[in-house]
């Protein structure tokens, strides 16, 4: 016990990769190693990148890595893509956009599948952050799956959430409906050469203007970019550092740390509880009880109540 953690603290990338896999499969060995590493962390600055499918998240991350490296900062990335709910398989395709950094020892990219988690991340995302932080990476970027209207887990795990939108993603009503708008610290209208981009940016600025002041007094910048052309990315970096500087104030940092710990705890508990529920439903339910529900002699309500009783 602790041997993986020791290797990781010494900078062993193989061990880091291994421990993330162990964390993904939620083995108890991973828990002890992560516990050790967590105590060595707390230095990395964390950035979340989120947005709908095809908005250009991976391409933007690729451009951000280049600029962060130019400033001498080391960067680790956890890039999440969805698992098939049917086969549990996945095609993790974010790394392919970042291969120009493949030979750079100051960059580590790990692709992760959601494995059934629904909030836009993998349950082990917090663990990956713990590992990268303990390894001494200056910046940890978390890229979510392509989000829709409710995948907002990213906000708990990172201190600067960058939300990508495009003018291609529907009208103003869609933008208002999307819960993900509430979580952005920085908004980027990407693919700005697409018609309607300026209008989208203007609409977002107006919507933000009408919202009440945030508790942390942060004003959300709305920027335009074309990540694939490396246009507008210096402005994005400036905004990111503005956010990180803002967070340096003690009151903000303690709130962020508290939120991060809570998000991590919630992710861990969520997996345990859902696994327990699945086992309970599969294993503890008597065939007669199922049959009764199927034949409508009783309802799923009383059956659910009985199952929950066993959890208490």
């Amino acid at each position: 016990m602790g041997s993986l953690a020791d290797a990781i603290l010494a900078g062993d990338r193989r061990a880091a990769g291994r421990l993330i896999s162990l964390a993904e499969s939620r083995t108890s060995d991973a828990r002890d190693e992560l516990e050790i590493l967590y105590r060595h962390g707390g230095h990395a600055r964390t950035i979340g990148v989120t947005g709908p499918p095809g908005a250009g998240k991976s391409t933007l991350v690729d451009g951000l890595i280049a600029r962060l490296r130019a400033r001498g900062l080391t960067v680790a990335v956890a890039a999440v893509d969805p698992s098939s709910p049917y086969s549990r398989g996945a095609v993790l395709g974010d790394r392919v956009r970042m291969m120009r950094h493949a030979d750079d020892a100051g960059v580590l990219v790990r692709s992760m599948a959601t494995r059934g988690a629904l909030g836009g991340l993998s349950a082990a995302t917090g663990d990956a952050i713990t590992i990268f932080d303990a390894m001494g990476f200056d910046i940890v970027i978390v890229e979510t799956v392509g989000v829709g209207q409710s995948e907002v887990d990213i906000v708990g795990h990172t201190e600067a959430v960058l939300l990508l939108q495009t003018a291609l993603g529907g009208d103003d009503v869609q933008a208002i409906k999307a819960g993900v708008l509430e979580i952005a610290d920085i908004m980027v209208v990407n693919k700005k050469s697409a018609p309607g981009s300026d209008r989208m940016a203007r609409f977002l600025r107006e919507s933000l203007h009408d919202r009440p002041l945030r508790p942390d007094a942060w004003t959300i910048p709305v920027l335009l970019a074309e990540a694939s052309e490396e246009t507008g990315l210096d402005e994005v970096i400036d905004a990111l550092f503005g956010r990180l500087d803002h967070n340096r104030q003690d009151t903000h940092m303690s709130a962020i740390r508290r939120r991060q710990a809570a998000a991590h705890l919630t992710a861990l508990a969520d997996v345990e509880i859902r696994t327990l529920m699945r086992r309970l439903i599969a294993g503890q339910t008597r065939p007669e009880a199922w049959q009764a529900v199927l034949e409508r002699r009783s309802g799923p309500y009383s059956l659910a109540a009985r199952l929950f009783e066993q959890l208490r």
Binding site: V91, L92, R95, V96, M99, D103, L108
Partner: peptide, 21 residues
């Protein structure tokens, strides 16, 4: 599947095998 597409370098591919476990 960790999909790397085309045009990879030998070094990049080997590094990916380690980082991606």
């Amino acid at each position: 599947v960790i999909y790397l597409g085309e045009h990879n370098s030998v070094q990049g591919m080997a590094r990916a095998a380690i980082d991606e476990d």
